[in-house]
Design a protein around this nucleic acid. Structure first.
Lengths: 79, 79
DNA sequence: CTGTAGACTAAAGTCGACC
DNA sequence: TGGTCGACTTTAGTCTACA
């Protein structure tokens, strides 16, 4: 699976968990709403700078916690 | 500290640890040598796609392990 | 509220050269 | 080997608009 897709899934997971809209996260992260949408669907190759804004400012968490999930563990999938 | 700087430091740390040159990592990651240099010095806002190539193909490790370090733990650490 | 699309401009990423 | 400097092509990221 593509890294962009994984990041998108992770963002959506965390976002819905916090009951936030794409617009809200985009606003907090100070990025465009349409771009936020593209990133969440793995359609855009976001830069680390923008990703940091989305993760830290938008979702309120650290890079370490964001990537500390099985999704980013290497290759194989669950099990 | 800037996220780009942190990533650069982490890359240099892992690279020297494995006794690899910037050229070697750039070659394995299939990115330009000059760009590799810029990223390591936190001078360029690398995209996740390229960063994935550098981390996975270039350094041979996972995103999870790359970011699983105190540097990316959120707030400051001095002290 | 989400997903796409077109048009735009800032910057990512490549390449060759030099110190 | 590592760092910088143009010059160049591609794309990230913004904005308006519509389903």
């Amino acid at each position: 699976m593509d890294i962009k897709t994984k990041i998108g899934l992770r963002i959506k997971e965390l976002r819905t968990e916090k009951n936030l809209t794409q617009e809200a996260v985009a606003w907090n992260a100070d990025v465009d709403r349409t771009f936020m949408n593209h990133v969440e669907n793995g359609k855009r190759n976001v830069s680390v700078d923008t990703l940091a804004k989305i993760i830290c400012s938008g979702l309120g968490m650290s890079f370490k916690d964001f990537f500390n999930q099985d999704l980013f563990n290497g290759k194989k999938k669950s099990k």
